[in-house]
Simulated assay, not measured.
Amino acid sequence: MVSHSRVSIVGAGAVGASLAYALMFKNICSEILIVDVSPDIVKAQVLDLADAASVSHTRIRGATPEEAGQTDIIVITAGAKQKDGEPRTKLIQRNFWVLKNVIGSMQPIRQDAVILMVSNPVDILTHIARKLSGLPANQVIGSGTYLDTTRLCVHLGEIFDVNPSSINAYVLGEHGDSQMIAWDAATIGGQRLTSFPEYQAIDKKAVSKIVSGKAMEIIRLKGATFYGIGACAADLVHTIILNKKVVHPVSVYVEKYGVTLSMPAKIGWEGIQHVYDVPLSKEEEERLQSSADALREIEQLY
């Protein structure tokens, strides 16, 4: 095992458990700590995951919030779910109090810890976590549009008949209604997507709707999404632990826009090492600015 390898997961629901499961099989953590307000849920998840640990070398156990605050990486999946017909502002208010209690119970948090926020609305909660924790902006990251970008690349892979890993394309801005696709900067093998014959036939609005609406389709069919975000969060933890310096679109404070939203960022031990400015068309820049403005209006309340 390497240094920077003790990870705590705050929130032992389906997302937290999926993350722990995915992380165990990477065999990079010396220890995974599970924290939740329900002792029974923690016990059940640890017992179940411990069975899977027979083919992994990762120790997994329940822990207190204070112990979680002393780990290298703190992943927060805890949060209230949106009720039918509930305004987004009310959900944010409820999750503000959840997050305030979570971060307050972990004090004092290690000054070199990295917080990875997974709970939604992730951009707003990443902003709040940064303020409540007192940690530098580079050490507080949200999963942001990483999953949206994965969904985009998978869909484009089908259109262009190429492995999704060979596609360089990003969903930027809010992880939500105002997110946008950076079409102008997308490439395959260094060749701009806009130069391919297949690009001309793409219904960009339809693709955007498919990508942003996939979560609701999954929720409609089975009630919740957890495998995709669990895998993405595990990959971000992997990137931090091994100081991989891989670029992913994650939610972070971006000085240019004065707000927390998703931009491609190089990630390593200390969290965000560099935020990249994506070349956008005038229309795309306006859409990203609109996304930033919408988020700022809410973030200013907190």
Rank of each mutant, 00 (worst) to 15 (best):
F25M: 08
K26D: 07
I28C: 09
C29G: 06
S30P: 08
E31I: 06
I34E: 11
V35L: 05
V35W: 02
V35N: 08
D36S: 07
D36Y: 06
S38G: 08
V42G: 12
A44M: 09
A44V: 09
V46Q: 10
L49I: 07
A52D: 12
A52V: 08
A52G: 06
A52Y: 15
A52R: 10
S56E: 04
T58L: 05
R59Q: 12
I60C: 10
P65D: 00
E66R: 08
E67M: 08
A68R: 00
G69T: 00
G69V: 00
Q70E: 10
T71I: 02
D72M: 01
I73L: 14
V75L: 12
V75G: 04
A78E: 02
A80W: 02
Q82R: 15
K83Q: 15
K83M: 13
D84Q: 12
D84R: 13
D84N: 06
D84S: 11
E86W: 04
T89C: 01
L91N: 06
L91P: 01
I92S: 02
I92R: 07
Q93H: 07
N95K: 02
W97Q: 08
W97D: 13
W97Y: 10
L99C: 07
L99F: 09
K100L: 03
V102H: 02
I103G: 11
